[in-house]
Amino acid sequence: MIQVKNVTKQYGDFIAIDNISFHIKQGEIVGLLGPNGAGKSTTMNMITGFIEPTKGEISIGGYDITKNPKKAKQQIGYMPEGVPLYNDLTVKEFICYMADLKMVSKTEKKQHVEEVIKQTNLIEVQNKLIKNLSRGYKQRISMAGALVSNPKILILDEPTVGLDPKQITEIRELIKKLGKNHTIILSSHILSEVSQICQKVIIIKEGKIIAIDTPKELENKTNQNKFIKLIIEDTDSKLKEIVKNIKGIQKIDLVKDNEDGTKEYVIQTQGNIDIRKELFAKCAKEQMTIFELKTSEATLEDAFMKLIQTQNKEEDKTCGQS
């Protein structure tokens, strides 16, 4: 559906995007992840035809975005970062204008506009001026504008930024629902969001792709260690002594020393060894009460940080060598 081939974007000597290539299949929800300034928005802007790549090709549903922009752009619904809107129009007027801009036929326009207003939950405010509405509404209006032509592809740049938790949940639900009928690319720096919504993640750093995979695979790949959180009654600080013979423990960190005599530890273990049973038995034998004992899996956040850090180290090495 979307084919990005050896795309580079250069501003003078500065390379914003450095020879990236990826492919997105129909019906996929893909997350574009990266630290601020990594090139997520630039990539999206090139896919939508807002800016032109310095080198490389981008094709949307078989149409090249620079050679056949009209056909390519007709397949895209774009929600830009910061939700720019025409504030002096009402919600309905704005959505109608977007339908006109996107060449929705007159016969379908009314029906499409009503549908997206319903879909994005804007019925109550449809006749209000956009400038008087809250950020949450504006986000949904922008989404409605992107959806009104019923595009095959939806491109959402930071769709949940600036929203309160309730609104974030609503927007995420909406994106998931839309994912059933659309191919979606969304950018975010909120990792949990991407792991919840997306089937595939593209991690970008300094204009380069450093990983493309499913969130689960990324977690697995970078997850060589498990962590156990333990809150235990340990006034004499003897936990380290007791557990030293348990196989697989790599590190024990005291995180918090509570006033009630309990201590919170994080125990790092190797690979897939589960030490909980043994740990429990040993503590029980010493009559130390366990208040909490749970494993925490590495999240996409850990995977992300690890990938970024690995990349940094590699760069340091090459710098050192040169």
Partner: peptide, 14 residues
Amino acid sequence: KVGTEQLLYTSPRS
């Protein structure tokens, strides 16, 4: 300035 140019230039209009 407002950023609405993104809506204009990403539409199929030339």
